[in-house]
Amino acid sequence: MFKLSDEGLKYVKNELTRYEVKQSAIIRCLYRAQDENGGWVSPDVISHLSAVMEIPSAQIEEVATFYTMFNKTPVGKNHIQVCVTLTCGMLGGRELCDSMMKEAGCKKTGDVSPDGLFTFSKVECLGSCDTAPMIQINRDPYTENLNTEKGLELVRKLRTAGGAGASGKGH
């Protein structure tokens, strides 16, 4: 069963008093719990948060399922989110995603690669269209101005780095 670390609990307690109403803390607490749970929001994350925050689990689940940045299924150490909207779509974002996925050993978006290091998602506009095509790894600052060659190199580099994740910070 998922349980927040002591530090995580402290974080949640602090968030609960940060805003006018305590349910405003749900998003940040979900991020925290997702990070501590290896990158996804499992059903027991929701029940644990519900108990800790004293907010009905339905309300937390509602938020967790509405917003795309909460992963409802497990993801690899590097969750690679490739922008495919409009400009990135025009300038090769979709092709980039497909080549990187192939190199990483993922058959389709949402899959975790056999080595557990990668999951790919095609995401909507990330607001960096002048550096298209671009990606976001986990919640790190963006990786921009990519092409197929650079994308493949990045996958190889992340594989060599092993479990550390792009920034070494995890999700």
Binding site: T85, L86, T87, E124, C125, G127, S128, C129, D130
Partner: peptide, 11 residues
């Protein structure tokens, strides 16, 4: 929340 595809000036 700048999310309109094509927009990045607020960032």
């Amino acid at each position: 929340d700048e999310s309109e595809p094509g927009t990045f000036k607020d960032r």
